[in-house]
Design a protein around this nucleic acid. Structure first.
Length: 582
DNA sequence: GCCGTTTTCGGCCCGACTGTTTTCAGTCG
């Protein structure tokens, strides 16, 4: 069972308990356990094998009860209490909960009164006008249920958006709102500001004096398909691209609190407020209230909110409730890697790779324009059929071309490299004597993605053991919204990479963003180095770097963890440790 | 169900919007 499988079970337990109107804190406890399991850097299986129940209970959000259930699941493959709960609950009830606007109470009432067997029954009942006759329901609710059912169907196909898709949509709405002179300050917040790899909805905040008029104007945005809420200070609509856009407007005097509140995450805010409450403060988007005196302190700038609580201000990217509050309180926040620290890109394709464009000269020029000291040209190899890559001999010829370009420029260096293929058995598809003559060897898995966890792990470990391999490219193989990462024993891989001095890539391509934040953090904890690369297939794509940078920051990476923050001499020394010629 | 520089018991974040109500429950972020 993967951590996701465990998490799903606890999510379901919490939903069933919610339907049965169990104590709401019990419901929350299971939700929290599921979330924590999802964000664990290690497999629960391994954790249990290593330290038993104690190790499980040491995790935040996991206590005796959840730990025992995990143990039962590992040992027997099922959990009696969970099975019992499932038996006592009609499956359609859980489906009802998925519909926006329907919570446990409404689900209960609908199920009892309409004897539903499926969501189709619900839709039929709504169409026939049978819902508006139920006690506590009217025509409006019926309409809302129909519309929610429709959007649920659409959303199930495409529930989330790439960060790179959501960003321009948000930017367009921001430009629209900025046309109102009354808008004094505006920011995209929520998961966008935290730079999550995919975005479920867009959150915007505005600092202004006349909230209601701005909310009105916001709801008239031309690409709004349907207004979902239109209040005094808050509004929200469904964008024609089917993402939800939320807006909150408050006076400038409280803008810092608003920014803090809406940036989230939910987990971060809950933890922060719990901590503040224990000190007698109540935090909301309006400010920090002293519960004894009832006095409300307002903050114009966000850092001041944290300062008031005697803590450092965690960068938005790490506000996920994964230890940043503790670190901020003890003034031990990581000093996250910045774009300024990046000295080069170590995974870039030129026109020599069949699927890429750009001459070496243009790539070098684009890199110099970004202020880089170096850039590694890493073409595909011939075994990657679709990309028409190079053979070993062609790679050596290509290296000469690269060196010729280097002779024409100064203050910058193109490195000759390759993105070699890790074959199904873990061998590299380019001979050692060729690899030895290249500056940078990125090794990536491109085929046989469905190997078992054990086989895939052995495969990557063998690649790491190759003395010429410098970087494992897009290590988990995921394609966001398209393909799941393959299974591998990441702790084992990170340990081996740390020992062998092989860096793990943080691939900045918006569909990849691979490794992800959780694995990045785990890799760092195992002492492995990272390389934040664009995998650019055209010179303009060097500009994708900020996406990879965001992912590294979300994984708590500091400059010292990232090899392409090294100045050229130090990088060459790091690369040359295995006897490659430089 | 979880958790502990107030606590091993008694707490558990905060507030807006909607719909159906005449003062609030349910839901959401």
């Amino acid at each position: 069972m993967t951590n996701r499988d465990f998490a799903k079970i606890f999510e379901q337990i919490s939903e069933i308990l919610e339907l049965r109107r169990a104590d709401r804190f019990r419901v929350l406890a299971y939700q929290k356990a599921a979330r924590e399991i999802d964000h664990l850097g290690e497999d629960l299986d391994d954790l249990y094998r290593r330290g038993g129940l104690k190790a499980l209970e040491a995790q935040a959000g996991i206590g005796t009860s959840v730990a025992r259930k995990i143990e039962e699941l590992i040992k027997t493959g099922s959990c009696r209490e969970y099975e019992k709960l499932k038996q006592q609950t009609a499956p359609v009830m859980l489906e009802l909960l998925q519909i926006p606007g329907i919570g446990p109470r409404t689900a209960q009432k609908l199920y009892r009164n309409l004897k539903l067997k499926s969501l189709r029954d619900l839709e039929a009942a709504a169409r026939q006008g049978r819902i508006q006759n139920l006690p506590g329901f009217k025509a409006k609710t019926e309409e809302n249920i129909l519309s929610a059912l429709r959007s649920l169907r659409r959303r199930q196909k495409e529930a989330r958006y790439l960060l790179s898709t959501a960003e321009p949509i948000a930017e367009d709405i921001i430009q629209y709102l900025k046309r109102l002179p009354a808008v004094e300050k505006i920011d995209a917040v929520g998961s966008l500001r935290r730079r999550q790899e995919t975005i479920g909805d867009i959150d915007l905040i505005v600092g202004a004096r006349s909230p209601r008029r701005i909310v009105e104007y916001f709801c008239r945005y031309p690409r709004a398909r349907q207004v979902l809420a239109r209040g005094r200070t808050k509004g929200s609509f469904l964008h024609e691209k089917m993402l939800r856009v939320d807006l909150e407007v408050l006076p400038l005097a409280a803008y810092g609190s608003l920014l803090q509140h809406f940036t989230g995450s939910k987990e971060h805010n809950v933890e922060l407020r719990t901590m503040a409450k224990s000190r007698g403060y109540s935090i909301s988007e309006y400010g920090v209230k002293d519960e004894k005196t009832g006095r409300m302190r307002k903050f114009q700038d966000e850092a001041a909110v944290y300062r008031f609580l005697k803590m450092d201000c965690p960068p938005p990217e790490i506000r996920e409730g994964r230890g940043e509050i503790k670190a901020a309180l003890s003034h031990h926040l990581p000093r996250l890697v910045t774009s300024r620290a990046i000295k080069g890109d170590l995974h870039v394709h030129s026109e020599a790779s069949g699927d890429a464009a750009g001459r070496l000269e243009d790539i070098a020029a684009a890199a110099m324009k970004r202020g880089y000291q170096y850039l590694a040209v890493t073409e595909h190899t011939a075994s990657l059929g679709v990309a028409q890559g190079l053979t070993g001999r062609q790679l050596l010829k290509h290296r000469q071309k690269i060196q010729a370009v280097n002779r024409k420029i100064s203050g910058f260096r193109l490195l000759a490299g390759v993105e070699a293929d890790i074959r199904a058995d873990g061998s590299i598809d380019i001979a050692d004597d060729i690899l030895a003559q290249l500056d940078v060897v990125v090794a990536s898995v491109h085929s046989a993605l469905r190997q078992s966890e054990a086989v895939m792990t052995r495969r990557i470990l063998r690649a790491i053991a190759n003395p010429h391999v410098d970087i494992i490219g897009h290590p988990s193989g995921r394609l966001l919204l398209q393909r799941d990462p393959y299974d591998a024993e990441w702790p084992e891989i990170f340990r081996a990479a740390a020992r062998a001095g092989v860096a793990l890539e943080v691939n900045a391509y918006p569909e990849r963003l691979d490794l992800n934040d959780v694995l990045i953090r785990s890799a760092i904890q195992f002492g492995a180095k990272l390389a934040i690369n664009t995998d650019a297939h055209a010179p303009a794509q060097l500009a994708l770097l900020p996406y990879g940078l965001a992912m590294a920051r979300r994984g708590w990476a500091e400059a010292s963890d990232v090899i392409n923050t090294f100045a050229l001499p130090r990088l060459l020394k790091w690369l040359g440790r295995k006897g490659n010629i430089k």
